[in-house]
Each structure stands twice: as C-alpha cells, then as structure tokens.
C-alpha cells in the first residue's frame, strides 16, 4: 500500500527523515535508507535543509524508491521560481514520486551560501495551490497540460508557535489550498498538542506529529533558546538531567517512544514523523519501544 493509502486506511503511520548529504558520497545515506526500509511508511527527503546546499531532493527520492522506501519529496520555495517549481513537480511525477511536502523554506541567511538571492516567487500556500492545479491538469497560468500529476500533497505546521493564532490561520489556508496531510514541527508537550489537534480535527486532514529525539538536557535548552516553535518543558529537561550524561540519549529515546505511544493509544493524531538528524539507526529502536514494531 502507498503512504496515501495507508494514511487514508486509518493505520497509525510513521515517517522519518532522510537528509541528502553534501557531495556525491551517498554510502551513509543508503545505509540509513536500508535501516528504515520495511519499518517506516514513507521517508521525507529534505530539500537543502536549513538552506545548506546538498544533493537535490528529487534525485534522492528516486534513489529511495530504488531502495524500497516510499519518498515524500520536500519542496521549498526558496531556490526556484514558479517555472522551476512546476517543472520539477512534473519531473518528480514522471519519476513515480507520489508525495510532496510544500514548504516556504528556511531563509538563505541560515545556510552556507549567505550571499544567495532568495527566490520566494511563491510561498507554501501558493505552492499547495500549484500542486492542486497540476493534479487537475492545469499549470499555474491555467494552461492545459498533456497529462496531469497525481500527487498526495502535504504541508507543515508549528503547533507550539508563539503567537499561535496567526499560525492557525495559515494552517486553515493550507487546508483550503489543498493540503491533505500535515507534518508538524517537533512537539514535546502532549497536552498542548491535544489543544492544537482540537483545531486540526475540524478539518478532514491527516496530522503526523513531529519528533526530534533529545540527546541531552543541553540540547533541550539549545532547542528552547534557538529553534522557533520548539518548547521542551522543564520536566523533560529535568528527566534528562537526572539520567546523567551516559544515559541521556537513551532517556531521550524513551521520552519520544512514550509520547508516540500515548498519541497512538489515545488516538490523538494520525501518525508521527521522526526527525532523527543523523541518528536514523535509532528510529527502529524508538518504534520498537513505542510498540510500533
């Protein structure tokens, strides 16, 4: 079954992230794909994440398919104008890529080519509309195309954004623009996430809660201070501290597994998205602890 079919069947889905490397040596990336194969339902292939130049998402999506992983093509609006985006979407479609995650994209100032001209000809809401158009046989200018795409299109949302209401307004616009599923920024407070889900459940879209495994109390503090939309509660930081340096990562994995288990058991959302950031090997372990394998 495809990711779309599994998600629509009501099964609790698991996606994880595979980050293309900088350079043509893809041995480690292929290893990560092999670790995740058969375990997760789809793999997000990031698009020059954090505006750091790497292998393009589309090529890695093709490699993922060759290695038995269903890819979700992450597509940002930072590096291509509307012609480039649509052209790449058509290219992805003929390669057999079925899922696309539409995002605006981190600003170039976050990355390793700070002098680059940011494009942002369109943004996430408009990109979703573009995908919807291509699925219906029309390009953005309304021209009829010979053959349409059949994408399952998703978007991102930050459930713990501060302030939250403007983020929710945008969430609604994304739904209206055709988003079928959402993958969230990392969440650490299930009660707050439940509040967000009360809003999301007004719409017939699927929501996958995002997870970034905490490796230490220091990392938790770093996320709180530096990463927008991430709030690690003090109780979790204390739990990591109490575990001590050697057991911090294991405790972090337990926290993630515990949260995932709760989300599934209480039927809070439709699945989870695990952003392992270099620790892809640990994804199956977390899934096992969460009772998903």
């Amino acid at each position: 079954m495809s990711f779309r079919e599994i998600l629509n069947s009501g099964k609790f889905v698991v996606t994880a992230e595979v980050g293309p490397p900088k350079g043509t040596d893809i041995k480690e990336m292929i290893h990560h794909m092999e670790v995740l194969k058969g375990k997760i339902d789809a793999a997000n292939i990031t698009d020059n994440q954090s505006a750091v130049m790497r292998i393009c998402s589309m090529a890695v999506c093709k490699i993922a398919m060759d290695h038995g992983l269903e890819p979700i093509l992450q597509m940002t609006c930072r590096d291509r104008n509307r012609i480039g985006l649509q052209s790449d979407l058509l290219g992805a479609s003929i390669l057999g890529i079925q899922n696309v995650l539409c995002m605006t994209g981190d600003h170039v100032s976050a990355g390793d080519h700070k002098g680059a001209k940011p494009v942002y000809d369109v943004e996430s809401v408009q990109l979703l509309k573009i995908v919807d158009g291509l699925n219906n046989g029309k390009d953005m200018s309304g021209n009829e195309m010979k053959g349409s795409t059949n994408f399952f299109q998703g978007a991102v949302v930050t459930p713990e954004a501060n302030p939250l209401e403007p983020q929710l307004i945008k969430f609604d616009k994304k739904v209206k623009a055709g988003a079928k599923f959402f993958q969230t920024q990392a969440i650490y407070d299930i009660d707050k996430f439940k509040e967000f889900m009360k809003h999301a459940r007004k719409f017939s879209v699927k929501v996958l809660a995002g997870f970034v495994v905490l490796k230490s109390a220091g990392m938790a503090n770093f996320l709180n201070n530096n990463v927008p939309g991430i709030r690690v509660p003090q109780t979790l930081i204390d739990e990591l501290k109490a575990a001590g340096k050697e057991k911090a990562l294991d405790t972090g994995m337990n926290i993630t597994a515990r949260h995932i288990k709760q989300l599934k058991e209480e039927n809070i959302c439709d699945g989870v998205h695990i952003m392992a950031i270099g620790m892809e090997d640990k994804v199956p372990v977390i899934m096992e602890r969460a009772g998903l394998l």
């Binding site: 600003h107 976050a110 408009q126 949302v157 954004a161 501060n162 403007p166 983020q167 927008p228 939309g229």
Partner: peptide, 20 residues
Amino acid sequence: CPKGILNGPCGGCKDGHCEI
C-alpha cells in the same frame, strides 16, 4: 517579511520575531 510571504507567518517565527 524576508521571504515576502503573502499568507501568514512561517515556522521561523519565534515569540513574534523573525528567524533572520
């Protein structure tokens, strides 16, 4: 908005301020 976004804040908004 450094990204010129036309339909609401991006995920980079932190406590009402810009990721830039």
